[in-house]
């Protein structure tokens, strides 16, 4: 697949409907290209252990996984605390506050864990990918790679895809654990639920299925973030302004896609 594309010049139209129609057609085309690119990156994954790719893959794993850990810890802790407090206060009216264990555990593993992790990774890692690839595109570095017959998809996209596919589930598990601990702290200090009662309750009613669905979501979100950020990066034009725009669009489009897909996946698995 050729990444460097010719500049396009579409005629101006004053007609609102024509403009709307064009916007729809263009976004369909862009999504298609992003999907094709991601598909090709999946095919290139068979070379991920070769000497020429190994280092890049390792480096991306490190950047994606380790660098986001700090902010994810804080967000996860407070997500768990808010969940516990919110549901706990309601449950206390029926003297059922011991059930916050289940409430926090299920909603974190199934929904909030992957969702919060994906939002943070999209905002930090995704926007960084878009900015880097965007800068490379406008300074013709991507064209230079293509001229040297080095596939930008293998060289740039594949390591990032691997990193996000591996790290998203790991980070999600981490978010789940920290969040559940946050819930326990709130339960103990504010709702009078002992740690023992909290964890017993969590283990008794949570299903493995919740965890698996959550991890599946995390992987899907990882693919979404890679596809959106790399595609936006490669489509960058007009210098520094364009790089800013690509970053912005990456965050917006990945947030929306994550939100919608998150709903759809839950819907499919829980009738």
């Amino acid at each position: 697949m050729i990444i460097t594309r010719e500049p396009e010049f579409l005629p101006e139209t004053p007609n609102v409907f024509a403009r709307l129609g064009r916007a729809v057609l263009l976004s369909c085309r862009e999504s298609g290209r992003a999907l094709l690119m991601t598909g090709e990156a999946f095919l290139h994954m068979r070379t991920m252990f070769s000497t020429r790719s190994r280092f890049d893959v390792m480096y991306q794993l490190y950047i994606t996984g380790v660098k986001s850990l700090g902010v994810i810890t804080v967000v996860a802790l407070f997500t768990g605390m808010i969940l516990a407090l919110q549901t706990g206060l309601e449950l206390r009216r029926f003297s059922q506050q011991v059930n916050i264990g289940t409430a926090v555990c299920v909603s974190l593993t199934r929904e909030m864990g992957p969702f919060m992790t994906a939002l943070i990774v999209a905002a930090s890692v995704g926007s960084a990918i878009a900015a880097q690839l965007g800068t490379m595109t406008v300074s013709e570095e991507v064209s230079a790679l293509e001229i040297m017959s080095i596939s930008p998809i293998r060289f740039l996209v594949m390591p990032r895809l691997v990193a996000l596919l591996v790290m998203m589930p790991l980070l999600t598990v981490y978010t789940d654990i920290i969040g559940i601990i946050g819930g326990a702290i709130v339960g103990k200090t504010q709702l009078g639920v002992s740690f023992r009662a909290y964890f017993d309750n969590a283990v008794a009613f949570a299903h493995n299925k919740d965890l698996y669905v959550g991890l599946f979501k995390a992987m899907v979100f990882g693919v979404v973030i890679t596809a959106v950020s790399c595609h936006q990066g490669f489509c960058t034009k007009d210098g520094a302004v364009g790089v800013g725009l690509a970053t912005r669009k990456t965050v917006i489009v990945s947030f929306l896609t994550i939100l919608v897909l998150g709903y759809i996946i839950t819907r499919v698995f829980y009738k």
Binding site: M136, S139, E140, E141, S143, A144, E146, I147, M148, S149
Partner: peptide
């Protein structure tokens, strides 16, 4: 393309 070497006007080195 492998038959070519190309020097870009803006160098295009990977930073």
């Amino acid at each position: 393309r492998l038959r070519f070497g190309l020097l870009f006007q803006g160098s295009a080195l990977l930073q």
